[in-house]
């Protein structure tokens, strides 16, 4: 195997590992740091794909990922966390070992699901669709099992990371316009989520979104 593919495989495995680490994380601060690391791994892998396939627009998206997901979004989330004063969020709906077991099940499921798809692909990194799918599903699992708002948003952003990884590894990236659009979307979404956080806290005095269930009138 050539070295660039080995490096991409290694980075893909790291992406999956970070997804699991996020799933097992109890503290918001470490969760945001892990999100930044995941962004870094994503940016590196995009860069390696760009280098090994010679697709120039992937360099731009690697740079964009670095700027947005490693620096800007973690900084925004850190600021939000400080302003909302929620450093010690520890609540999960199911306990963490059980979540990890469900996570393993999801990984097996997505590897199986991706096996026939990856045989259709021609690209050098087709084996990675399974890993990308697994990290998307793991991030979704994190959104489902967390009770508080900030981890759910981090889960959402991590899910976007997984999708982005799927796009670069399976098809060498989306058109630049789409990529810019998604980047902007994620940025705006984070701003809006930030405003939502303040609204939720002002209404309920906590960021526990289960309070929102009381809003419906029956």
């Amino acid at each position: 195997m050539p070295y660039n593919i080995q490096i991409i495989n290694l980075l893909a495995s790291l992406l999956l590992l970070i997804a699991f680490a996020m799933l097992s994380q109890r503290r918001i601060l470490s969760l945001i740091n892990l999100f930044a690391w995941q962004g870094l791994v994503l940016s590196l892998s995009t860069f390696v794909v760009a280098y090994s396939t010679g697709q120039h627009h992937l360099y731009y998206s690697a740079g964009l990922t670095l700027l947005l997901k490693v620096l800007l979004l973690p900084w925004l989330l850190h600021r939000l966390m400080r302003k909302l004063n929620v450093r010690w969020d520890v609540e999960t709906l199911i306990n963490i070992p059980a979540t990890m077991l469900v996570g393993i099940g999801l990984v097996i499921f997505s590897f199986n699901l991706a096996a026939p798809i990856s045989q259709l692909s021609e690209s050098i990194t087709r084996g990675l669709i399974g890993i990308a799918l697994a990290s998307v599903l793991l991030s979704m699992l994190m959104m489902l099992t967390r009770r508080k708002a900030i981890p759910q948003v981090v889960g959402f952003l991590a899910m976007e990371n997984g999708l982005f990884f799927a796009a670069t590894s399976a098809t060498h990236g989306m058109p630049m316009v789409v990529e810019l659009g998604i980047a902007l979307d994620v940025l705006v979404a984070t701003f809006i989520f930030g405003i939502f956080f303040f609204q939720i806290r002002e209404t309920f005095d906590s960021l526990d979104i289960s309070n929102m269930e009381k809003l419906k009138d029956d």
């Binding site: 996570g103 393993i104 990984v107």
Partner: peptide, 24 residues
């Protein structure tokens, strides 16, 4: 400790699965 060692088991199983997927 069980959670810590559960992490070890998880990592080892992930290693096996990744070997199946990537062949590496």
């Amino acid at each position: 400790a069980p959670e810590f060692l559960g992490t070890a088991f998880l990592l080892a199983v992930l290693g096996l699965l990744i070997h199946f997927l990537l062949g590496a």
